[in-house]
Simulated assay, not measured.
Amino acid sequence: MHNSYQQISEPNNSVRLSDIAEATGFSLSTVSKALNGRSDVAESTRRIINAALNMKGYTKRNTARKKQHLIEVVFQDFDNIWALEVLRGVVKEAKKHDLGTITTISGDKKHPDNTWIDGVIHRQPVGVILIFSTITNEEQERLNSCGIPFVIFDPSGNPTLNSMSVQADNWTGGLTATRHLLSLGHTRIGIITGPSDMMCSRARFDGYATALAERGIDIDPALVTEGEFTTPGGYAQAMELLNDPLTRPTAIFAGSDLQAMGVYEAARQFELSIPNQLSVIGFDDIQTSEFLGPALTTIRQPLQDMASAATELIVKTINKLPAQRHIIMPTSLVLRQSTQALHPRERRTDP
């Protein structure tokens, strides 16, 4: 225990950890564990110790963290070009500041698995970017106690006031996509959303609903499907939407470009020509979208710029520079060849 105490002893002031132990009633070992962000300390205990440290003006030495010169990006999977676009943005911005980048694959699309926090604290990056995730108050406390800032990229839920986040204007994107299809004469517009428990999915659907309401068009539940932001997910949901020739939509708004690729395959299965018999619009504008046949009309969310902004937030934080804590970046319509005006003879009212 003596060695652990020496490792974290105070370099910038005369506060001793033994004083903190005496003041809080906890052992020196527990104080040391709390200060080092160890997982075997109760959150309530950690808060009491951190409060005492702050009151005494204790400053933790963080030279070990600075030596890493790394930003860690926590993905829930890394099996598609969307993730690669995000990583490119992080790497490009990190390089400007002489920082390296490491990636971790962990957990699901709402929260990393239970081991990730211990791994991050062991690796001691200068900061962490979490993709789609939310983290618990205890995990935030542990990162804060170790001086590791974190940014949530496209958060699955509402980010807390004391966290940092970067996301796209998903509501406006959904509104713009649907308005575009409406302007072409489509009124039976199918939508494939992402998982409903993800904030970006709900926002894109709300934009879709608003655009329809502007034209006095009620939402048809038969035209609304939910799937994962993947090509197989888009394919499965499009097969469902297109199954009945009498009720199928004349256009589909896919919640992601990857889903739109699945729609293309479903249309091929039903021998539907895009855009002559089915207009398709995606969301993201990933690199491969313009090389589909036909090239995909989509809503661009600036993934690389968003990733760059998340990285810059970390750099500003570790350098104690002022920074906007929650960033929402604009989306825009990218017109290509997968949407076209509905032929007058194909226009019909809901059955």
Rank of each mutant, 00 (worst) to 15 (best):
S29R: 06
S29T: 11
S29V: 12
T30V: 03
T30C: 00
T30Q: 01
T30A: 02
T30G: 01
T30W: 00
V31W: 00
V31Y: 00
V31G: 02
S32F: 05
S32Q: 07
S32C: 09
S32G: 14
S32T: 14
S32N: 06
S32I: 14
K33S: 10
K33T: 14
A34E: 01
L35P: 12
L35F: 10
N36I: 11
N36Y: 10
G37R: 09
G37V: 05
R38T: 01
S39T: 12
S39L: 15
D40I: 02
V41L: 08
V41C: 10
V41N: 12
V41K: 10
A42G: 14
A42R: 11
A42D: 13
A42I: 08
E43V: 06
E43Y: 11
E43Q: 13
E43D: 08
E43H: 07
S44Q: 06
S44L: 04
T45W: 02
T45F: 01
R46I: 00
R46W: 02
R46A: 05
R46G: 03
R46M: 04
R47W: 02
R47A: 01
I48S: 12
I49W: 01
N50F: 03
N50T: 01
N50S: 05
A51G: 04
A51T: 02
A51K: 09
A52Y: 13
A52T: 07
A52D: 03
L53V: 02
L53C: 10
L53I: 05
L53P: 04
L53Q: 06
L53M: 11
L53Y: 05
N54E: 13
N54A: 15
N54P: 11
N54M: 12
N54Q: 12
N54H: 13
M55I: 08
M55F: 07
M55L: 13
M55H: 13
K56Y: 05
K56S: 07
G57S: 10
G57I: 07
G57E: 11
Y58V: 02
Y58G: 04
T59E: 08
T59L: 12
T59F: 15
T59V: 09
K60T: 00
K60G: 00
R61M: 12
N62H: 15
N62Y: 10
N62W: 14
N62T: 09
T63M: 11
T63F: 09
T63C: 15
T63Q: 11
T63W: 14
T63G: 13
A64P: 08
A64L: 15
A64S: 09
A64C: 15
A64R: 07
